[in-house]
């Protein structure tokens, strides 16, 4: 068996005195403090919510949206693939027969409970029709009641994609 002897640090007198190290640390923190006290604008933070983040990439998984066909009707065919794939069980679909001749099936209700949702993106992966996406770039959802956080089909259809295809 090979034995590697690791050299222990911190046994020198300078390390054991501890005070030089404290002095070094204080120098660092005091430098930051004085620099930022002198010029608060040098602190690189976002003045949220007045300033909104500008660095959301197209891979960011924001709030969901339901996409449309070319004729503007709902693309979803209510196949339940997303609801099956969902690890949080937060997608609720009720299917209905589609009568406008575009397709055979459509959801009469498509709701996502965003309080349950873990934003894993499995629904997007599972969808065979590219009907659900998470490319809205919306990262904050505000409501005063729990019911406000259950997004219904109309809301999901109204969300716009934030990025080009």
């Amino acid at each position: 068996m090979k034995i590697r002897v690791v050299q222990r640090h911190g046994t020198a007198l300078k390390d054991r005195l501890y005070l030089p190290a404290i002095w070094q640390g204080l120098k660092i923190t005091a430098t930051h403090l004085l620099k930022n006290v002198g010029d608060i604008k040098s602190v690189d933070v976002l003045e949220y919510p007045e300033e909104q983040p500008s660095d959301i990439t197209n891979r960011y998984r924001g709030l969901h949206r339901l996409t449309h066909r070319e004729d503007g009707s709902v693309r979803c065919v209510a196949c339940y693939m997303c609801a099956t794939a969902c690890p949080a069980g937060c997608i609720f679909i009720e299917a209905a027969e589609r009568t406008d001749g575009v397709d055979e099936k459509m959801p009469s209700r498509f709701a996502i409970d965003t309080l349950e949702c873990v934003f894993c993106g499995y629904c997007v992966e599972a969808c065979p029709c590219d009907a659900i996406r998470m490319d809205t770039g919306i990262f904050s959802l505000i409501g005063s009641r729990r019911e406000d956080f259950v997004l219904e089909k109309e809301q999901l259809l109204a969300h716009k994609g934030a990025f080009d295809e």
């Binding site: 608060i40 602190v43 690189d44 933070v45």
Partner: peptide, 10 residues
């Protein structure tokens, strides 16, 4: 405030 400024926050 000082904690923030030391850690480059506000």
């Amino acid at each position: 405030r000082i904690a923030g400024l030391i850690q480059d926050r506000v």
